[in-house]
């Protein structure tokens, strides 16, 4: 299926994949489809911290722009420079090569409050 079960998802269409206390964050396939050709992405600097569901960046396509929301609270430890330079990668591979940032999470329990792959798929079907 499109939405990996091991990831968790927000209602704002971000995903997070947790390995130990480091989470990889991106936007979902559905989100990139809605945006269309992504032309620009603005991401925070390493070292910045955000609360769960706080806006941490923006993504822009020709026709629209959207804020990015943090799936879990944490500190940014890595930024995917490749997508900053080539935002089209997000369209091509939203769940893998198109990841945006890695964070050191503050509260692992937040993970369980997010949607599972199945739940997210149902959520997306409902909203489209």
């Amino acid at each position: 299926m499109k939405y990996p079960e091991s990831y968790r998802y927000t209602r704002e269409h971000e995903w997070i994949h947790l390995q130990g206390d480091v989470g990889t964050v991106g936007i979902t396939h559905y989100a990139q489809e809605q945006l269309g050709d992504i032309v620009y992405i603005e991401l925070p600097a390493v070292g910045q911290t955000f609360r769960q569901l706080q806006a941490f960046g923006t993504v822009e396509s020709i026709k629209t722009a959207a804020d990015l929301y943090m799936p879990m609270s944490g500190e940014v430890v890595e930024v995917n420079q490749e997508v900053v330079n080539h935002p089209e990668i997000i369209n091509q591979s939203p769940h893998e090569r198109g990841w945006l940032i890695r964070i050191r999470v503050h509260d692992p329990s937040e993970f369980d409050r997010l949607m599972s792959g199945q739940e997210y798929e149902a959520y997306v079907e409902q909203s489209s």
């Binding site: 032309v39 620009y40 822009e60 396509s61 020709i62 026709k63 629209t64 722009a65």
Partner: peptide
């Protein structure tokens, strides 16, 4: 170009 900064897309933002 770069219209995503503008009012007709971003509205109050």
């Amino acid at each position: 170009t770069l219209a995503a900064r503008e009012q007709h897309i971003r509205r109050e933002k």
